[in-house]
Design a protein around this nucleic acid. Structure first.
Lengths: 252, 252
DNA sequence: CGAAAAGTTGATTGTCTTCAAAACTGGTGG
DNA sequence: CCACCAGTTTTGAAGACAATCAACTTTTCG
């Protein structure tokens, strides 16, 4: 996602010349799995995380059915994950960005149960799961982080279930936009401007809506002066009114 | 849940006189966390899991906001877990039965983020999380099981998202019933008869439907001869036609 | 540059929700 | 033990919201 802020928090994301491949000098360190580790613990993690993979736009990082052997930490770019039913309908289960971990679905049966597709040219760190498992037996903080990453994903999905189960179209889209800017802000981007890396169709799939409904709801938000939309470029004009959409009647 | 089969697989669930409190002689051993552990590994787990808690119907095992310190393995009974938004609307995120683990949501922030409520008088084993963590550093199989339990929950929730995002009322209810009997069957109960421990309202919350819609859909299924419904007692008459509801057009 | 993909907007339909009333169930106390 | 009452369930009628169908515009990318 885009629109870098003048006063950024965590930065130097792209690092084009690419220095050493190591968590210890990765700008996402404090957002990613090795968050809060001591220097020597970090060194041990570095020893395990040796490979990166570049994933081209519209290309899978992994696919449903593939053997699971690693988690992936996103360095740059954005991914979507989606599950498909036997009859072909599919559901986007999430959009992941820098510092987030994908692949947790593969642990339970040693095979991935969803697709992870890059929405733009991206780069991930490969975290071989058995090595991570071994190391986390020795480094307590890492073990706890791993548990937290999985637990966080469970809690996130609870939120999505709430959204899908109880919200109307406007509320869903408002929640979606607010979640997005919040995560972007944590990465040093603007809290009011964003570039969607996904199509209306993909947003709709995530939110349990048809693409036409997403489009219409964007238009309505724009008419009401809540946001400004130019294709995938969105500027949030009135965060508070957008937030208010999520607490319709009496906020407890 | 009910209706014990004449030819049961895993059984003696209630154990009324209550023998020793130990995974090693628990009938749910092969369904629960210690699945597949060796006898001496099992003994070490026994040392950590020393307490049980009885939870009365309609009573919370834990509540949103409470400090997290343990996972719970359900021994008998059924629970629901639900999240609530600030504005009060709530969403049932799952129904859990014997052998299943609840409380994973609490790991990430050391506080529970949902309520777990007993739907009938129930009993759980308390798994102190720090002790489990310690032990899983030494017992590799336990570590892996714990990871699998969390991953399984993530995958389960993907399925719920697919349901909430793409299915119509009939499909949702069919999926719900089929999931329920499948899990009951794995526990030695009938694959065609079940007693719902939850209200229409709770089913509706889980499925993203209003209780009236759930009721109507039950009635429609009954009219069509798919099931027989007497209050919370459900008998499945035509599993195949029920399954067929889930693959509407062309099954891939 | 041209074709394919993505997005917008309108009209109509369908499904589920809402509102309402009545019937049933199960638990409690007289 | 029975009556009663709150909670649950069923069913109907009307209304709302999003889906569908369709046409057209804009953008993207080879």
């Amino acid at each position: 996602m885009q629109v870098r802020q003048p006063t950024p928090a965590v930065q130097t994301l792209p690092s084009p010349g690419a220095i050493k491949v190591a968590c210890s000098n990765c700008s996402l360190r404090e957002l990613c799995l090795p968050m809060g580790l001591s220097p020597d613990e970090l060194a041990r993690v570095d020893a395990v995380i040796t490979t990166r993979r570049k994933i081209k736009r519209k290309t899978p990082l992994f696919r449903n059915g593939e053997r699971f052997h690693a988690l992936y930490a996103i360095r740059t770019g954005v991914f979507k994950t989606c599950v498909v039913a036997e009859d072909g309908r599919d559901q986007v289960t999430g959009f992941q960005m820098a510092g987030e971990i994908v692949g947790l679905d593969g642990i339970v049966n040693d095979h991935h149960t969803c697709d992870a597709i890059a929405l733009e040219d991206s780069e991930v760190c490969v975290l071989p799961f058995d090595r991570i498992g071994e190391l986390s037996r020795e480094v307590g903080a890492l073990q706890h982080h791993l548990h937290r990453v999985m637990s966080r994903e469970i809690v996130r999905e609870h939120g999505v279930m709430l959204l899908l189960g109880t919200m109307r179209a406007e509320e869903r889209l408002a929640a979606f936009l607010l979640n997005l800017v919040q995560r972007l802000q944590a990465r040093g981007f603007s809290q009011s401007e964003l570039v969607l890396r996904m199509t209306r169709q993909e947003i709709g799939s995530y939110l349990g809506l048809k693409l036409e409904t997403v489009s219409r709801t964007f238009s309505r938000f724009a008419e009401e002066g809540l946001i400004e939309v130019h294709q995938r470029h969105v500027r949030i004009l009135e965060v508070e009114r957008l937030r208010a959409l999520l607490t319709p009647a009496g906020a407890a």
